[in-house]
Simulated scan of single mutants.
Amino acid sequence: MYAVITAVVCAVLLNVTAAVFIVLRATVYGVRLYRPMLVNIALSFVPVVLAIAGAIGLIVLTPALAGIGSAGISPALFLWGYLAIATVVWLLFFPNSVYLITELNLNHRERKTPVPLWYDIVQTLTLTVSGIANAVLSLAIVQFGLIVLVFDPVALTAPAASWVFAGVVIVLGAVGVYLGRYLRFNSWDVRHPGGMVRKLRAHFAIRGKTLEAIGFVVSHALLVALIYVPLFSLTVAALSVAR
């Protein structure tokens, strides 16, 4: 629990630091405050909140399962339903954290600006790292939860099935980033599937867009995986030693 709290605190500090850099940029150099970045920071932290809320929900629901069973409802079915809904909701917002990688294009920087290039590089890099931290932390919480509840609660290592889950999430996260950056989709656009399908058809009808999407997804997923896998593996190893 101490490790989780430490990780959450570090992620929060990264998000706060990124926001402070954005505000200082406008204050110190007298330029327009780039509000979209502040909004993206908030959206990026949503998966962390949802992952923690889902874990707390499980802790709260566990004592109530016996009562649910006495009411004629299958506790296992109720638990699986909760896990499915909580995971899907979290997954819809997960790409918002990885999305901050795309801020490295410095599209907020105007051609003529008093802001030094070094400042924008540090500010944007901090923003990107905060997003990656949010992605890693939220995915780690969910993967740990699935290991304990579904795969193998007594495993000293992460079961292969949990890695498959993490890999699928990372790829879907990269797909979500592509859809958000190039088709301007948001997590809540799933409420209008018909409109999403029409935009997708129009987009991929353009020659070269399919290959572009594949390259984007593969490269971004590889980057996140190369960061996530060793961090999660080291965490699991540390927990195994602690046992």
Rank of each mutant, 00 (worst) to 15 (best):
I5M: 12
A11L: 14
V16E: 01
A19E: 01
V20R: 05
A26K: 10
Y29C: 11
L33D: 15
L33R: 11
L38W: 04
V46P: 06
V48T: 03
L50N: 04
G54I: 02
I56V: 15
V60E: 11
I68G: 08
S70I: 09
A71G: 15
I73V: 11
S74M: 10
G81K: 02
L83Y: 09
A86I: 13
F93E: 12
P95G: 08
L100G: 07
E103Y: 13
N105W: 08
H108R: 07
R109P: 11
T113L: 15
P116Y: 07
W118E: 08
W118K: 08
V122M: 07
T124Y: 09
T126R: 10
V129C: 00
V129I: 05
A133L: 04
L139N: 05
Q143Y: 08
V150W: 14
F151L: 13
D152S: 10
D152G: 03
V154I: 07
A160N: 10
I170M: 01
G176F: 00
V177Q: 02
L179H: 00
Y182D: 00
L183A: 07
S187Q: 13
W188P: 12
D189W: 12
V190G: 06
F204E: 07
K209E: 11
L211A: 15
E212N: 14
A213Q: 06
G215L: 12
L223S: 07
L226D: 07
V229M: 05
L231A: 02
L231H: 07
S233L: 01
S233N: 04
T235G: 05
A237W: 13
V241D: 05
A242F: 04
